[in-house]
Simulated assay, not measured.
Amino acid sequence: MLFAYPSEEAMNQHQYVPITDLADKMDDNLLCMITNAETRRMKEMALERLDYMRRACASDPESAIVKLGLRVDPEFADPDEKEQKEHIWFRMKGFIGPDTFQAEALNEPYYISSLHCGDVNVYHVSEITDWRILTEDGQISPDDIYLLNYTISDSKS
Rank of each mutant, 00 (worst) to 15 (best):
R71E: 13
V72E: 06
V72L: 03
D73K: 05
P74S: 11
P74F: 01
E75R: 13
F76A: 04
A77E: 04
D78C: 02
P79K: 00
E83W: 03
E83R: 11
Q84S: 11
Q84F: 07
K85Q: 12
E86L: 01
H87D: 07
W89P: 05
W89Q: 05
W89L: 08
W89G: 11
F90C: 08
F90S: 01
R91T: 13
M92F: 01
K93N: 10
F95D: 04
F95N: 02
I96E: 10
G97Q: 10
G97N: 12
G97Y: 08
G97R: 11
P98D: 15
P98C: 10
D99L: 15
T100G: 10
Q102N: 12
A103L: 06
A103F: 06
E104T: 07
E104N: 03
A105W: 06
A105I: 06
L106T: 04
N107W: 09
E108C: 07
P109Y: 03
P109T: 05
P109D: 06
Y110G: 09
Y110S: 13
Y111K: 11
Y111S: 08
Y111L: 09
Y111R: 15
I112W: 02
I112S: 02
S113R: 14
S113V: 09
S114Q: 13
S114C: 10
S114H: 09
L115T: 01
C117F: 05
C117T: 12
C117E: 15
G118S: 03
D119L: 00
D119Q: 08
V120M: 03
V120Q: 06
N121K: 15
V122S: 14
Y123W: 04
H124A: 08
H124P: 04
H124D: 15
V125C: 09
V125G: 07
I128A: 04
D130K: 08
D130W: 09
D130N: 14
W131R: 00
W131P: 03
W131K: 00
R132T: 12
R132S: 14
R132A: 10
L134Y: 00
T135Y: 05
T135P: 07
E136H: 04
D137Y: 12
D137M: 15
D137N: 14
D137S: 14
D137I: 09
G138L: 10
Q139N: 13
